[in-house]
């Protein structure tokens, strides 16, 4: 069953790519994938599609590295009290699982997973100097979680392989769960409008 779905998705992608190739040809611009299809080189087209998907997953991996570092800095800050600290450690473990899944997927696509930056880099780029209380930690974490959820939603249309689009949706769901818990802990109101993420 799973095999059948994969093949259908592959056929759909090939059809769409062929149409894109013809469209692009009319404009005098051909992507590597389009050239591969027109030249009867499906391997070349497949490689370009895999490379594009690996690039998107690598950006996601960068986000996960940043989230892991942010929760680590928060946990070690002495600002978090139990049970908030326990929740932060749990969420960090989710991000570590995301990281590991992304590293595996990027490797499978032939890409090179990006490495995490140094803690001092994250301290500077996340403006940790301005974080003075548990509320500040939670607000920073919530901002990162919302951004990550929206990022995972926003890249879905770009994936060439729908299986990675589905993974992106699953990652967005985890980030949304984190955002919701953090919002409740902060005592803030939930969105009154539907479809509040990805917009």
């Amino acid at each position: 069953m799973h095999h059948k779905i994969t093949m259908n998705a592959g056929a759909l992608n090939a059809g769409l790519a062929r149409r894109e190739a013809l469209k692009a040809g009319g404009m005098g611009v051909l992507s590597v994938a389009a050239i591969g299809i027109l030249a009867g080189e499906p391997t070349m087209a497949k490689a370009a599609a895999s490379s594009a998907d690996a690039d998107i997953l690598n950006v996601a991996l960068g986000l996960e590295h940043e989230a892991i570092a942010a929760y680590q800095i928060g946990a070690e800050s002495g600002l978090l009290q139990k049970p908030v600290l326990d929740a932060a450690v749990l969420f960090q473990s989710h991000h570590k699982a995301h990281r590991d899944a992304l590293i595996a997927a990027i490797g499978k696509l032939g890409g090179t997973p990006v490495a995490a930056k140094s803690t001092s880099d994250y301290v500077a780029s996340l403006d940790i100097a301005s974080v003075k209380s548990q509320t500040d930690v939670l607000r920073l974490a919530r901002k990162l979680e919302r951004g990550a959820a929206n990022a995972y939603i926003g890249v879905i249309p770009s994936f060439k392989n729908v299986a990675y689009a589905q993974i992106s949706a699953r990652l967005a769901a985890d980030e949304t769960m984190h955002w919701t818990v953090l919002t409740q802990v902060l005592g803030d109101a939930l969105p009154t409008q539907a479809l509040s993420f990805g917009a």
Binding site: V59, L63, D127, R146, G147, N150, A151
Partner: peptide, 11 residues
């Protein structure tokens, strides 16, 4: 809400 997952103005 959307860009700041990856971007900042000054970092």
């Amino acid at each position: 809400s959307r860009c700041s997952a990856c971007h900042s103005i000054d970092a």
